[in-house]
Write a protein that binds this DNA or RNA. Structure first.
Length: 377
RNA sequence: GUGCGAUUAGUUCAGUUGGUAGAGCACCAGAUUGUGGUUCUGGGUGUCGUGGGUUCGAGCCCCACAUCGCACC
């Protein structure tokens, strides 16, 4: 039975721990979910993802998987889990964000969203109904509702109209979800998404509506899309008391290590972000001591381990000088090592957060940690 | 040996009728938040082969030399 159970809470903040039960196993929260857009966490073996990084759940993306390899292949493969050989939980984003960020030519109507493929320009349409069907075929444990991601600098009028559309799509999505069944023998659930841009009253209204369609969890979307970080935190503080304690809260697309700890302090349980992998491929490494750009010339002759405090085997097997060399040489191994390190760090980050919540000293621990992890090395 | 051509940033090259130099890549930095192995922003790092000459002024015109390339004895 799909469920979320809160297991402990921090006395000094809204931070809490919990467990999500799925047919593919449990997920301890707070959790960070590595992003595996097209059915792979770029450059990382599944073996390492499980044993070294200790990922408990990964993402897939409906927009990308729908375009490639396409629904026929995914159905024939028996769903994404079998296709990519991942037996732990998967969450799929609906593709609403990609339509917002990738497609130059898109037309949003009450019916749905027409868009052109970024690959070949072919024309497609997502509706709440076919988006449910598509995510059924992909077979994610957690499906995300189709929404419109409102830009961070949108005006009130746009945000209001956008929210109305997201809400009507949610009702149709929910209806379709309840009329259909999983295709592969394990249970699926879906998370509605709270929009409302940066207006507290819109956010509250969005949350109350979304909660009507929430069973296990609920997502907070439309943040970290251009608004100041402080505004993002304010929105989380507005939503925290509105969302019942028995729902998993997922802050979509966030963020930096500091963002994650601050999000946890404001009651968020789940995070995903391309930052550890995409920025990792671009030589940015996150550590407990701060952020390094391994392309910088100053690492060229630093023969110390990549990260003496790191939990990944790569942290102790290779030196900064070597990784610097690989980046300058354009070797794909550089991207692999950096991705592995960063994901291991992100998972260690939330693991330690969980431990300190259980110990009851999360708040002072977090304040100290944020100082260190944010500085530039 | 002779003739022709070349020589400008790390590299490949551009450089107006003479007014102390630019571009791509590389390099050096910064950005990146529900991923197109990206993308964007900023930075010029130079004894214009060497030495003379003409000129108010030479990367550019003239002479010599050096090096490289091609062709021909």
């Amino acid at each position: 039975m799909f469920s979320f159970t809160k297991t402990a809470s921090d006395p000094g903040s809204s931070a809490r721990t919990g467990v999500i039960h799925t047919d593919h196993g449990q997920v301890q929260t707070p959790i960070f979910m590595p992003v595996g857009t097209v059915g792979s966490v770029k450059g990382v073996y599944h073996k390492d993802l499980k044993e070294d990084i200790r990922a408990e759940i990964i993402l897939g993306n409906t927009y990308h998987l729908y375009l490639r390899p396409g629904l026929d292949i995914l159905r024939a493969a028996g769903g994404l889990h079998k296709f990519e050989n991942w037996d732990r939980p998967i969450l799929t984003d609906s593709g609403g964000f990609q339509i917002f960020s990738l497609s130059k030519i898109r037309k949003i109507t009450a019916e749905g969203c027409k868009f052109q493929s970024h690959i070949d320009g072919s024309r497609h349409m997502f509706t709440p109904e076919n988006n449910v069907d598509t995510q059924r075929i992909i077979g994610a444990d957690i499906m995300m509702a189709l929404d419109e991601c409102c830009p961070g600098d949108a005006d009130r009028r746009y945000a209001t109209e956008s929210l109305k559309l997201t809400q009507s799509w949610l009702e149709r999505y929910s209806k379709r979800f309840n009329e259909t069944s999983p295709l592969y023998g394990y249970e699926q659930t879906f998370f509605p998404i709270i929009q409302g841009c940066t207006w507290p009253d819109l956010r509250v209204q969005a949350a109350e509506h979304a909660l009507e369609h929430s069973k296990v969890g609920i997502a907070i979307g439309g943040l970290a899309v251009g608004e100041p970080t402080e505004v993002m935190y304010e929105m989380l503080e507005v939503l925290d008391p509105v969302i019942p304690q028995d729902r998993a809260r997922y802050l979509m697309g966030v963020g930096t290590p500091a963002n994650i700890l601050e999000g946890i302090a404001r009651g968020v349980d789940m995070f995903d972000c391309v930052m550890p992998t995409r920025n990792g491929r671009n030589a940015m490494l996150f550590t407990w001591n701060g952020i390094m750009n391994l392309r910088n010339a100053k690492w060229a002759d630093d023969f110390s381990p990549i990260d003496p405090d790191g939990t990944s085997f790569v942290d102790h097997s290779y030196t900064k000088a070597y990784l610097h060399h690989l980046f300058i040489a354009g070797e794909m191994f550089a991207a692999m090592l950096a991705s592995e390190h960063n994901l291991a760090f992100y998972l260690d980050l939330v693991r330690q957060a969980r431990e300190h919540i259980k110990l009851g000293d999360f708040t002072p621990w977090k304040q100290e940690a944020v100082k260190h992890i944010s500085q530039r090395l």
